[in-house]
């Protein structure tokens, strides 16, 4: 009986939590854009986007390099090392770019967003905004949400571009793959709408989910040091699981069914 009760209790908790998160998201999305908010959003794009550039670029470079190295050792057995370019490019644009960027974004910017908003709640800054007749959803949540949604697809594209250059560095400059075939087969194989656009759509979906989780976990955090620590951890865990799960669904929809 207790077991049944706890299932019911946890289900109700999860549903009310989802309801609160949905209301917050709607509040953030329909927040009327004002000139002041655009300035705040640009600042947040700098905080969550520009300040994440270094980790994104370095990760992209190394992942591109590793892929080229692994790909070359297999492709060379079949004399197909000329296909290294499309292999690296397609893996990055379709999968690794959006997914790894989202995971890194959740760890770097998502956790920071949760902690920042959670601390604003704990130090009564959100309450003081309310009392100053300023809607925290419009002033705090909306700029951060839109910043995440705008920044992440751009970061994913940068990740893929740097990864392709990393692949070139290892494949062409180090292992001696022909530069012409690296670029030309890539150009012939990668399709704009199927590969690049689908990658951007994936990244956009991940951006919405990761940023939503991050800001909601901060907004809904228990305003104590333990509560904020818990919320920050949950942001990274839930975001990572959501990204990996959604990636499978999106890949199946985009590439799996002909």
């Amino acid at each position: 009986m207790n077991y049944l009760q706890s299932i019911g209790y946890n289900t109700l908790n999860a549903l009310t939590g989802f309801g609160r998160a949905l209301l917050m998201l709607v509040g953030a999305i329909i927040a009327v854009p004002q000139r002041k908010n655009i300035r705040l959003t640009v600042h947040q794009i700098y905080v969550v986007g520009v300040q994440s550039l270094l980790i994104i670029m370095v990760s992209g470079l190394f992942i591109g390099m590793v892929m080229a190295l692994q790909g070359y050792t297999i492709l060379v057995n079949y004399g197909a090392e000329g296909s290294l370019g499309p292999m690296v490019a397609l893996s990055l644009l379709r999968e690794l770019g959006p997914v790894v960027t989202a995971l890194l974004f959740a760890g770097r910017a998502g956790s920071a967003l949760t902690a920042e908003i959670g601390l604003m709640k704990a130090t009564e800054q959100l309450s003081s905004l309310e009392m100053m007749a300023v809607d925290p959803l419009r002033r705090i949540i909306a700029p951060r949400f839109w910043a995440g949604v705008i920044a992440m697809p751009m970061l994913a594209l940068i990740f893929s571009a740097i990864g392709i250059l990393g692949g070139h560095l290892v494949g062409v400059d180090w292992l001696g793959v022909d530069a012409g075939s690296y670029w030309s087969i890539m150009q012939a194989t990668v399709e704009w709408d199927k590969d690049v656009v689908n990658g951007i759509i994936k990244s956009f979906v991940f951006a919405v989910v990761v940023t939503w989780i991050a800001i909601f976990k901060g907004y809904d955090a228990i305003p104590t040091s333990e509560g904020i620590s818990q919320a920050t951890t949950q942001t990274v865990v839930y975001s990572s699981l959501a990204v990996l799960g959604l990636d499978f669904v999106l890949t199946a929809l985009m590439f799996g069914i002909n």
């Binding site: 130090t123 009564e124 800054q125 309450s127 003081s128 309310e130 009392m131 100053m132 007749a133």
Partner: peptide, 19 residues
């Protein structure tokens, strides 16, 4: 409510300054 709140103000225990 927001219109009314413009006529009132609150000093929080922590100060609640924007850091």
């Amino acid at each position: 409510l927001y219109k009314t709140r413009k006529k009132m103000s609150m000093l929080f225990q922590s100060g609640a300054l924007f850091t």
